[in-house]
Design a protein around this nucleic acid. Structure first.
Lengths: 188, 188
DNA sequence: GGCCGGCGAGAACGCGCGTTCTCGCCGATG
DNA sequence: CATCGGCGAGAACGCGCGTTCTCGCCGGCC
């Protein structure tokens, strides 16, 4: 029975598109039903509440972002190029007309104060990204790779926020340039 | 009759505290009435709708942030120190237990997609901050002060986002260190 | 064929919220 | 003193939404 998983993914596809585009609280369950074509009863069988669906939405975005990012980095060989590939990936993402900022930061601003589950998923995602940047920074053999990774993480978050508000992908370029300088300065 | 202005500011005080702490959509008008002590009828006389109150809340935050930041910067004399004072100010702000991220980024994530008024105020605020950073960057006499200002703006946004999610003020330090490196690299 | 359990579509329910209305009070005016 | 206009408190209204219930249908078993 592969219908089970298909239903779940159809619901998550709709939830992802709607939550990301319009914000979470603005999207009602019936809208998700209309877009996914899955009746409410089955949606509630897969996800016992809207809160559960929200967390599943974030978790799937987390996996998606991680694999996409790793793919892009894996295409580069030099350690510096691998770090900078993160910002090139961001640029392409920002350039997508559907880009509306970091889903995790948006969700945290909207629900972090009243939904501990959402707050946890967001923190986990940010910690994972920070860990990944830490490994990339280590590869460069920089002195103080940890400090470099912290700075890169700030640049990534800042680029996403700035790009969301301004509506242009330019912040990815600016963050990339800053990263290049910071890597150079941290060279051993 | 100075009561008029006092009522408006009492409402804005309550709206600021509640919107910033709990998110905008989670706070109802009656909650603002309870906290401000101003009856609904008078609230609606000052602000014809909740949307108008939201924009007034953001505008007041904009003025507050600008004057606070300028005060802090004005206490420094060297051009580099003046730029770094921005991040020291952020650190103190992040350290406040009530800190919950950038009110403008939060509002944008929550309402930017469906409220053009909110989106406009947020963009204006970010543009003003960016302009201010541009003037500070100019002062340093850096080559490519414009590029430096863009990078500083990304660092500021990133520090606010990272500090909000992690709940620690450390990102301000990390962003400050990055800014120092970037300023040094841009020295003429 | 005749029953029956599950399913889809949509109505229903309870609640919260933005906004407006009602009602009883009080101070000012003639 | 009688009248009246404005005010505060809270009820009321309309709507949207999360969640559940109802009803009519249809495929599977005796």
């Amino acid at each position: 029975m592969d219908n089970e998983v298909t239903i779940e993914s159809r619901v998550l596809d709709a939830a992802d598109a709607l939550f990301y585009a319009h914000g979470i609280q603005s999207v009602g369950m019936d809208r998700i039903r209309d877009v996914s074509g899955v009746p409410l009863k089955q949606i509630y069988r897969c996800f016992p509440s809207k809160g559960a669906l929200i967390e599943a939405y974030l978790r799937r975005r987390d996996e998606w972002a991680r694999t996409e990012l790793e793919k892009r980095v894996a295409a580069q060989v030099g350690s510096t190029e691998r770090v900078l590939a993160v910002f090139d990936w961001l640029y392409d993402w920002f350039d997508d007309p559907g880009f509306r900022g970091c889903a995790f930061l948006n969700a945290y601003g909207e629900l972090g104060a009243k939904s501990p589950g959402v707050a946890r998923v967001v923190r986990e995602h940010k910690a994972v990204v920070r860990g990944y940047l830490g490994r990339l920074a280590d590869e460069t053999g920089a002195s103080g790779a940890d400090r470099l990774a912290d700075q890169l993480a700030v640049l990534v978050d800042g680029a996403m926020s700035a790009a969301a508000v301004t509506g242009t992908p330019a912040p990815a370029r600016q963050a990339r340039a800053a990263a290049e300088t910071l890597i150079g300065a941290a060279a051993p």
